[in-house]
Design a protein around this nucleic acid. Structure first.
Length: 205
DNA sequence: GTCGTGATAGCCT
DNA sequence: GGCTATCACGACG
């Protein structure tokens, strides 16, 4: 497939940078899940930056725990956590080892494997409902705690590709579901492709 | 379309 | 024991 030939796997240096820049640059990139020899992929359309121990919305705000330890490790690994008793969320670890930061992947636009995604998301009727939220995306791509800590900088069960590099306009907003985070709750660290139908919620208030 | 609410379990004070 | 980086469904009009 031409898409495969043209696309390169994103190297570790992509993630070893300021988290806000990585969150913005991940928009339009392709998230690939290989499962049973087949390929599922989405174009990333929405992200959020969680920028370090001082960020009161970041899971690392109270130091390292068994759950968040992957965030303290090398950039370019998956941090997958279980939330609300039912769902998983996928993050990509950024910045130097020892500094806990990551980008939450909040939504994608299906590119390959739509039939498999539909089989994994039996509740979803419209294509928009397959991957338009962090929990939905993980369900559609079969991402769970087994992938916590996975290296996403080489081909394997989970990795990212550069994609087609098509141009797009980017918007930023406050992050979702972090009302508890004091002076950090309104930081404009949610990024999305403007007017893309696969984003999880309306752009801004 | 928007709003309110229940499901469900692991995490951390 | 309280909270959570969510989702689906039903009521409303």
């Amino acid at each position: 497939m031409l898409l495969n030939i043209m696309s390169a796997v994103l190297p570790r240096s992509f993630y070893d940078r300021d988290t806000i820049e990585v969150a913005r640059d991940l928009l339009g990139k392709v998230l690939v899940r290989e499962i049973d020899g087949s390929r599922l992929s989405v174009k990333i359309v929405e992200t959020e930056a969680y920028v370090g121990p001082h960020d009161k919305a970041c899971h690392a705000r109270n130091g390292m725990t068994a759950r968040n330890r992957v965030m303290f490790g090398e950039p370019g690994h998956a941090y997958v956590y279980f939330i609300y008793g039912m769902y998983y969320c996928l993050n990509l670890v950024t910045e130097k080892a020892g500094y806990p930061a990551a980008v939450l992947i909040r939504a994608g636009e299906p590119l390959e494997g739509e039939d498999t995604m539909r089989a994994l998301r039996t509740k979803a009727r419209k294509i928009k409902d397959l991957t338009s939220g962090p929990g939905k995306l993980c369900q559609a791509m079969s991402i769970d705690r087994e992938l916590n800590g996975a290296d996403v900088c080489r081909k394997g069960p989970l990795y990212l590709e550069t994609g087609m590099g098509d141009s797009h306009e980017i918007a930023s907003c406050k992050r979702i579901g972090v009302e508890y985070a004091g002076e950090y709750k309104d930081k404009p660290w949610r990024f999305l492709l403007k007017d893309n139908p696969f984003i999880s919620k309306a752009e801004c208030k």
